[in-house]
Design a protein around this nucleic acid. Sequence first.
RNA 1: GCGCCCGUAGCUCAGUUGGAUAGAGCACGAGCCUUCUAAGCUUGGGGCCGCAGGUUCGAAUCCUGCCGGGCGCGCCA
Length: 576
Amino acid sequence: MSTLYARFAAHVDAALDALEAEGVLARGLDRKNVTVEPPRDPSHGDLATNAAMVLSKGAKMNPRALAEAIVAQLSALDEVVSAEIAGPGFINMRLAEAAWRSELAAIHGGGGDYGKSTLGAGKTVNVEYVSANPTGPMHMGHCRGAVVGDALASLLAFAGHDVIREYYVNDAGGQVDVLARSVHLRYREALGEAVGEIPEGLYPGDYLVPVGQKLAAAHGDAFVGKPESDWLILFRETAVAEMLVMIKDDLALLGIHHDVFASEAVVQAEKKPEAAEAFLRERGLVYDGELEAPKGEVDPDWEPVTLPLFRSTQFGDDQDRPIRKSNGSWTYFGADMAYHFQKAQKADALIDIWGADHAGTVKRIKAAVEALTGGTKPFDVKLVQMVRLLRGGEPVKMSKRAGNFVTLADVVREVGKDVVRFTMLTRKADAQMDFDFAKVVEASKDNPVFYVQYAHARICSLRRRIGEAGMNVEAAPNPDLLDAEDLELAKLAAQFPRIVESAALAREPHRIAFYLYDLAAAFHAFWNVGNDRVDRRILVVNNEVLTISRLYLADAIRQVIANGLSIMGVQPVQEM
RNA sequence: GCGCCCGUAGCUCAGUUGGAUAGAGCACGAGCCUUCUAAGCUUGGGGCCGCAGGUUCGAAUCCUGCCGGGCGCGCCA
């Protein structure tokens, strides 16, 4: 069943087709800016289209004249009660109540699929998110990107994309060697050596203790007093594998499961960077050259060196970027470039979710993707800002030196997965956010998590209560009993498919959260009318068919809330 | 020095990719609770959308330049 907004977009399209056929409107005009939306001011009507204004220039017509022609077409529709021209050429439509009743039927018919879109047209999108270094458990710094990436992936899937959820494991850089050395220390400790204070520069966290024990149990003292070359690779691979187990457990706490864990070491072992370099050299986009001296602070040790450089300046970067170090090994960028090339083989579009501290490297990687794919694969980097942790308004103290950062697992354990996920989506990703342990679990209207869940639970309890009142909750509703006041709620619910599409286009999952808050607020307001006016209650004593019909409305709201929450990865609650 | 992000009500933030009279919560004022769960509700005041230009039927939104704040600048990862 088509949703209301999709149907009216088609109606407007058909009206324009008809005008073309009549010769009123020039053929082949670009309609991509034509919209069908609810007007900001509800007194203007239910739906508005800007078609006349957008097309008037190309049609060489006065917008109002064109609007009149379109109005004539739209007025003929059964679902349209009135269509009027307003302002500079808006067409405002008022819909028959039947239109909103049919949308309620669409919600009930669609169930969990209501709001799904074909916008994505089955195109494959690779969403890479989290990608935390495999050197320890996840801490709160990773949390927001994880949730935003996961919700975005779900949103895109809901909007009709094939989605690949991917995690890039940085298991090839210096930080995993440091990890291996840290584990070696724990290994010696497990064999009885007193290692004392963990030296500066190594990872001090206790989570490495069991890894050392495991290696000690498996290998005994075979690697004690041996040169690093004997054990580094084994220790590194073991440690990374153990860290990934921890990270996956942490992600599972948030309900996050990636489809692909891509290893940087494998990318390198498979010579992907070499292939990318050759490809770019052929096109003159990699050359051997010297880096400019760093700007700003003067480094006395700076010496010019010849390195293979990617010509990212040709794509708007301010400097060409080295892809190999002077010792011949790959820079992070060199490998990352090849990794993105690899992802682009299996997807129509790429999205990366990064922490805002990596903003400085966006240009070079976008340049690289454009160069490697000839611009055929749209590539978007979404930056996610820092989260400030507060407890009752006071910043939570953390000491990185002591390694006692706030872990994601601790937070999830304290406030719950759903609260964490919802809260992380109550702000635009690129805006800084506060996460206050006290506020996110507060049971009040200020807390959107609670308020939305409460609306869902309220409808669930309503259903139970109607049953307890001796009415048959499975009886057939009569939607004609729903009056204009009731249908205002249906109008808001009917926005959901549009919100999904616009959020997917903008790649902004937070819009779902804001919409659900609005919908919940409208439902609570609707509910509260019943406090003063008994006839406006949903449960009307001695009137089963009216009660069931209003439950039908309320259940539609519940369904939309549930669908929105499912995109966010939040479990709707039945009671509170 | 350069780049990126941000600047909307006293505060925290939305603003449907350019639409009509810019919204919500908090805070402040007024009124309302023995409930289809008041875990609140109704209602009022409060805005040079940082500033100045530009683009056009139309700008908080796009462009340019300033002002102010944050982040980043590496053969690191």
